[in-house]
């Protein structure tokens, strides 16, 4: 199982802050994970519609689409950050 976390408007669009999922075996990278997320239902399709406006972190480090997710305990999706 992998823990998925959602923040800010990604969390609002999905209606959940986190969930535990079993990622299909053929989903190996962050980019493939995004593609799979879109197929999980209308809320997911809406939240992930603009791929470039949703960023990702794998085990609490920012991760690009090519990053591998094998063995990750925690993967987060969120909008571009606006702190400071």
């Amino acid at each position: 199982m992998t823990k998925l976390l959602y923040f800010a408007w990604v969390r609002e669009k999905l209606g959940i802050a986190e969930e535990d999922v079993t990622v299909p075996d053929d989903v190996a990278t962050v980019g493939q994970l995004r593609e799979w997320m879109v197929t999980r239902g209308p809320r997911y399709a809406a939240a992930f519609a603009e791929a470039k406006s949703v960023r990702c972190a794998v085990d609490q480090d920012f991760a690009k689409d090519g990053a591998m997710i094998a063995g990750a305990a925690e993967i987060a999706f969120f909008p571009p950050v606006t702190g400071g």
Binding site: F7, A8, G83, G84
Partner: peptide, 20 residues
């Protein structure tokens, strides 16, 4: 920090509207 720390700001306006 502005581009690499995971914070998100939401503005709350008088009257109750809000936006990220």
């Amino acid at each position: 920090l502005k581009t690499s720390a995971p914070f998100w700001k939401r503005e709350i306006f008088e009257g109750g509207s809000a936006r990220w």
